[in-house]
């Protein structure tokens, strides 16, 4: 895939209620994600603005990597909302990852509203190259 430019988008995509029943009484969004692969690892970047890092939950079960970000919004005291362009809310997204990922070596880092997951590839996956003989 080429490194084509992607325009900035202001609106967030809301999680469909059919996909996940919510117990928390607030909106939930699907964070935009970039995924790229290098020789040694797979990197997932997700836009999750406004979440405090202690409220990010990452779990891995049966090859499904799920990321949850919980927001506890506080409306500024004494102010009234004059114009609303975005809704604050939780984030949720899942990815199916392959067996070729070193599952206990996944690293997460949150900075400036972006979550970065680094998934190192297993040694065997790096080596497992099958030569095709022509003959």
């Amino acid at each position: 895939m080429t490194n084509e430019s992607k325009a900035l988008e202001a609106q967030k995509e809301e999680l469909l209620p059919e996909l996940s029943e919510r117990t928390r009484d607030c909106r939930c969004f699907v964070p935009r994600a970039d995924i790229y692969e290098t020789e040694a690892e797979v990197v997932i970047l997700m836009d999750m603005p406004g979440i405090e890092d202690e409220y990010i939950e990452i779990s891995l079960e049966k090859n499904i990597l799920t990321v949850n970000g919980y927001l506890f919004p506080v409306d500024p005291e004494g102010y009234s909302l004059a114009r609303c362009e975005y809704q604050a809310g939780d984030f949720e997204r899942s990815f199916r990852i392959s067996n070729q990922i070193e599952q206990d070596q996944i690293k997460a880092q949150y900075q400036n509203g972006v979550l970065r997951l680094t998934l190192p590839k297993a040694e065997e996956a790096k080596k497992r190259k099958i030569e095709v003989k022509v003959g």
Binding site: E4, S5, K6, A7, A33, I35, Y36, E37, T38, D47
Partner: peptide, 14 residues
Amino acid sequence: LPEGATYHRQERGF
């Protein structure tokens, strides 16, 4: 992106 990296998915704008 490091050398030789490829995108599987690119949803974030810049």
